[in-house]
Amino acid sequence: MFHVSKHWLAAMAWTIAMLVLAITHGPASAGSDHSNEKKMQPIEASGFTVTWAKSPAPAPGVNSAAVYLMLENGTEKDVQLVAVESDAFVMGHIHKTSMTDGLMSMAPVAQLTVPASKTVTLEPNGLHIMLMGPKHKFTAGDQFPLSLVLDNSHHIKAVVNVVKPGDVLLHGHADKMMN
């Protein structure tokens, strides 16, 4: 018996769409105006520290993943985070979840200011990096690379730990509590 599920077809169509996107737009990126620089080896930004980078393993059939992290700007200059890239995903964006009149919605953030000597926290129900189109399946315990692109096109490299869906909870709250 041969059975093609609706879901399979949708997944196929989606994969093709993402491939087209990947071919026309190069590796995963959000924002624009830096496609030329990408052909060159990116310059690694110094003075930045990424901690707590984790991504809850997406449920089967879900093609997006949220990444949470803390980014410390140890320099004396404010910087703008303008894009995110990962070799493990087709594209990425910075997103903000907000609640207005009791409604939760998600919107892209074009650029995120990381003030001098400050730490920006991306955590549930606030800011997150949303990666779309995983190139393979991720489960808790896996890792993947992430690049945070600054407005001067320098990159901050990070390694993201894939965790179980509930595992962001304790840390996120503990961090908040300890402040």
């Binding site: 549930p124 129900n125 869906p165």
Partner: peptide
């Protein structure tokens, strides 16, 4: 919704806690 990347998994984890 199942494709909810941020709020829903977090709420589920919170309610379990």
């Amino acid at each position: 919704f199942t494709h909810c990347p941020d709020v829903c998994p977090f709420t589920l984890a919170n309610l379990e806690a």
